[in-house]
Nucleic acid binder design. Sequence first.
DNA 1: TCTGGGGTCCTAGGACCC
DNA 2: TCTGGGGTCCTAGGACCC
Length: 428
Amino acid sequence: MKKVFALVDCNNFFASCERLFRPELNGKPVVVLSNNDGCIIARSNEAKALGIPMGAPFFKFKPLIVRHNVHVFSSNYGLYGDLSHRVMEVLRQMEADVEVYSIDEAFLSLPVTQVWNRHQYAAELRARVKKQVGIPVSIGIATTKTLAKIANRVAKKEARFQGTFDLVGNSQTDQVLAQTEVNDVWGIGRRSTEKLNRRGIYTAHDLKRADPTWIRKHLTVGGARTVMELNGISCISLEKAPACPKSIITSRSFGHPITDLDNLREAVISYVSIAGGKLREQGVEADTLNLFITTGPFDEQAGYSNNQTITLQRPTSSTPELITAALQCLKSLYRPGYRYRKAGIMLAGITSHGYRQQDLFSFSQPAVKEDKQLMAALDRINNKWGRQTIQYGMTTAEDKPWSMQQTRKSPAYTTNWQELPVAKAAGV
DNA sequence: TCTGGGGTCCTAGGACCC
DNA sequence: TCTGGGGTCCTAGGACCC
C-alpha cells in the first residue's frame, strides 16, 4: 500500500515542558537556556514575538528579558526527556510505524486515505497528545519527509489550519514552496543558502526546479536528494529501529575557567562516567576513546586546543577502564598556563555486546565478569538515587569550578520523588 | 562577568600498495 | 628530457540537523 509521511513536532518543546507545571505562565513569554545558562535555546510564541532569536547569548538579551518580564529557565533535560518519552508512547499507541527523529519530533508512516480521513486522524493525534501529556504538537503530512517538514511549518505558522497541514495531492503545493525560503528547507543550511542565493535560488520552489547536475556538483549527494524530495520522490525512508550509535560524546563547558590539572582531572572523570553509563544503558561497548580539552573561543588570551585518541585492547563499557585511558590522554594533552573552558570525550568503535568478536585469550576472565557486576550495581544505585550518588575519584568540595551554572532550574517534577509537583485545592 | 551539547554524513587529501 | 594508473584505508574538516 502506498504510504505518506506525517511529521509530528512539539511546539516550542522545552518552553512547553516548563509551562506544563507552571500553568500560570500560559500566554506569557518563556525562554529556556542552554547548559551553563549560556544561550537561549527555546522560546514560547510570546518570547519569539518579542524578537528574541534562537541561539542568542542570554546576557545580550537580558535587558529586553527583564523589561518584558520574560520567565527564564535553566535547561532541565531530565524533565524534557521524560515528557518526550510520554509523547512518543501516545504516538505509538495510535500508529505502528513511528520514527523518533529527535527529542521533540517523530515521523509517522500513514496509509493513503481520503484527505478528510487524514485530517480527522491528525486532529485525533493532536488531541490525544494534548490530553494525555499536555504538550501541544503540530502535524505536517506529505509524500516525502522533506515536504512533510515544510507542511509542518505551515501547520505551526498559520493558526487557521489548527495545527495540521496536508500537502498530499494539494494543488497549492508550488505556492507553498514559493513562500518558503530556501534556508528553511530541511538539509539546506547557511553555507548552501549562500551558494544557492548566488545562483538566484531563493525559495523552495526555485530549488525544486534547479538544475540537478549543478546541485549534485555543488551541494553533493545530500543536496541532490533534497531536490528529489521536493519533487515528491521519496529518498529518505522511515527508520523505525534506532541504529547502534556510531559515537557517544560527553562534553561540557565549565562553569568557570580551569587552570590546574586536578580540576581538569575531576571534570574528565565525571564526563567519562556519564559516557560509560550511556554505553551500558544502550547495551554497547566502545574500543576507541578520544579526549579533547580547549580554551574558550571568546577568550582574549592565547588559546590552546588539542585532542588525543587511544585504541583500547578490547571493546569495553567499564567506567574504570575508560577513566584509565582518558587520564592517560589528559596527562599528555595538558599544558600549564592556559585557562581551560571545556573538555569532552568521544567514544567510538561501538559494537553491541552480542556481536563482539571473541578474544581467543579472554575466555573466562573473572575480572571482566566482576567488573560488569560492579557497573550494573553502580548504575542501579545511580538510576534510583541520582547520577551523582556514587562517583569515581571525586573530592567532596561543594563548589567545583568546572560544574555547570544553572541558577534557574525547575524541579525534576516527573523523575524525582522529592520534587513531585504539589496539587493545591482552591481556597486552601 | 556572561556565547550549549550531541549527533550524522560527505569529501578531499595523504599514505600506502601493486 | 623525462616521472603511470588504480585502488584502499584513514583522518580532518565541513556542513547539516535538533
